[in-house]
Structure formats: structure tokens, C-alpha cells
Amino acid sequence: MSGASETFDCRVAFAEALEELAEADPRVVAVVNDSVGSSKLGGFKKQFPDRLINVGIAEQNMVGVGAGLANGGRIPFVSGAACFLTARAMEQIKADLAYAGANVKLCGMSSGIAYGELGATHHSIEDVAWLRVMGDITILVPSDPWETREAVRAAAANEGPYFVRVSRLKVPNLPRPDGAEFRVGRAEELRAGEDMAILANGIMVHRALDAAEMLAREGVSARVVNMSSMSPIDEEAVLAAAETGAIVTAEEGSVRGGLGGAVAEIVATRSSCKLEILGFPGFLPTGSVEFLLGRHGLTAEGIADAARKVAG
């Protein structure tokens, strides 16, 4: 177990996993919108120059090209900044991938608010909500380098359209038992607890674990569940969390339609659980990543505060 102080950029894990896959399977190709550097695909390009397809700064074309490559028997990983990949190419994602069931793997880099001060044009806090309503695209929001690798492998191994949300905000490797397995559609309980549950994904998971530690010192037993599989979502795990009576969700995304929204859809009709949704209310003002996370309670302290509110 590495020390919690050591942190990693998950884009590196994404790129390493993709290079391993490409080495093992000649069908694997990468498609980019001039985003070789920002997708950390310099190594891939060096190793597989013919299999790195740069379509230029043209996201609609990029997603369509991905669908065509899949039709031609390739396994395309279409990678670009999450904000442009999803927003600019949304109709291609809908018609060419989700509706058509194309075997294309979208990899949204630097998702959430990783671009901080660059502002809301470059933030991607809407992506999960936009994609989730379609239902026909698997959405994974990995929490650390290990899970990012596993998500990329799962995307390659399973037929159909995928969206893998890859943060560049550094996170520690999370503590997991030996032999831990990643499974699409399954939530991962990282800490047991009976008084309330924190459901988080992406870069919020390690903060959720820290919050649970703080709560434990106050005598509150908080469960922490990693909801990296956003679609399909593990309804059983959500309903089990609801049995504690209080849930806090935490995501680096909009409070509308993402993890909090998905959990609300499940618990509102099937339990009387209290729910607090942590996320961003909409377009954000200028500020660093840490400033913006802190402002909206997306820190260990903020999560613990929300937990005290619902579990109190």
C-alpha cells in the first residue's frame, strides 16, 4: 500500500493501460482531436504511430470517425478534453454511438473542474448528466490510477459504447484488499458503516474516506461507497445505503442529473432516506480547483459537515 500522501494523475494510468492493450490487440487504436499531449498519448504515438489517428480540432468528426473505425473492426479509444468531447459532439454520441450501439470508447480527459481558472467553458461538470439520460452508453468515473486502468480494460473487453471520465487532478491510490476486482455496474464498498453512507466517485472518493475517518472520531460510523459505475448504476448498493437512513453524495460535477440525481431517482421512490447532494450548482466563477471545491463543500470537511447534517 503506497502512502496516502503520494498522488497521481489518472491520465498517466489511462495512457499506460491503453498502450498495454494496444500491444496485446492490434485492433486497438486511439483517435484524438489534436489532444495527444493533453491525453498523455505521446508514448502511444511513438509506439504505434499508425494507430494514433489525429483528426484535427474537430470533435464531431472525431466521434463519427470513431464509429466508422468500430464498423471496420477496430476498437477505437476516442480521447479529448471532456468538455469538448461531450458538448461539441453530443449528437454524434447520441446517434452514431449510443443509438447505433457502436463499439467506441470515449475517454473524457481533465473532466470536472480540472481546468480551474480557465473557467466554465473548459469545465465539464455536465457530462455525466448529459450522457446518463441516454441509458445506452456505459459511464465509468474511476477514482484512482488502479481503477482508471481497470475501467480502460473493461471498456476494451466489453462490446458497446463507453464513456470513461479521466481526471487529471492528482489522487492517491485507494486502500483495497488484495485481489480487489473492478466490475462494471457494481459499486465498491471501501469502508463499512451503519449510521450513514457517503456515495462518491472520481476524485471525491478519497475525500469521502477522509471524511469518514473524521466522523469516526466523533462516534459516527459512515459507510463509504465508490460509485465509479454511473451507468449502469448499482441500485442494490444504493438501496442498501438508504437503509442507514442518511446518504451524502459527492461528485466533481453538477448537482443536477449526475450521481446525486441518480441516487435521488432510486431512493426517492423506494425509501424514506435523507439525502444531501454535494456538487456544483451551475457555471462556476473564476477560481482555482481547490478554491472551487472548497466553496462547494467538496472537501473532506465539507462532506463531513453534510454528513452531520443528514445523520444528526
Binding site: N61, G64, G66
Partner: peptide, 13 residues
């Protein structure tokens, strides 16, 4: 405007 980019991907494949 959807079919042509997909056809380009097929041609690359």
C-alpha cells in the same frame, strides 16, 4: 452531416 465522418472512419479502418 453524420454519415460522412463515419464513412471516413470506415475508410481509415
Amino acid at each position: 452531416g453524420h454519415g460522412f465522418p463515419v464513412a471516413v472512419g470506415m475508410a481509415i479502418a
